[in-house]
Amino acid sequence: MLRVTELDAGYGFLRVVHGISLQVNQGELVALLGPNGAGKSTTLKCIAGLVRPWKGDIAFRGHSIGGLRGDLVNGLGIGLVSESLNLFTGMTVYENLLMGAYSVPEAEKRRRSLDFVFSLFPRLAERRPQLAGTLSGGERKMLAIGRALMGGPSLLLVDEPSLGLAPKLTQQVFDALRKLSDDGLTILLVEQNVTATLEMVDRAYVLEQGEIVLEGSAQKLSESEHVKDVYLGVMA
């Protein structure tokens, strides 16, 4: 469904991503792991059209989308939950969700998406008239995922949902993602919480200093010496 080939990207003169290639198939839940500053977020932003790639190709359903503007990428069915969430803090929860369905013309479809998001995160339904800027960290994360889902994406990109969340809340969010994946949604997840992530994803890539150093099934990676040393060892 998504194929990234030899992608180079960066900011100004600083190259952050060095020729990485990765692939996400229909229905898969794939993780992109790596330490701080490895270039994970940059990769996601390139795919979502928020950062212009320098070189390489990004193909979605066989069509090249590299360098396409963010709103157009969204229109093709790619939803992004960014690291900083980028919520509309001056709008209510309801308005934020409505904005998520900005490019969905059918009112009926929007209503169904809304019902679905509220069933996934009942908490959001309770907070419907509250301004997004006044939500708690966990609620914000739910809202950001909910907003991305409102557009009815076929590929969801999620950047570090566990960031700043208590383990219990992290688990809740992960459960929601697993459930979405089970319902058939294709997801590319960026995470640093390696243990929990590898427990739920199908496959994963490990990105270090802008290069993919490891890739394979969750099973294979959890057994890899490198991962054990560098990530699980540290985590344990």
Partner: peptide, 22 residues
């Protein structure tokens, strides 16, 4: 819808792009 989009741009520009606003 348009007014909300305008406000969205004013509040968070990348966020606006992410939900498909030109």
């Amino acid at each position: 819808r348009i007014g909300r989009a305008i406000r969205a741009v004013s509040q968070d520009e990348p966020g606006a792009l992410m939900v498909g606003i030109n």
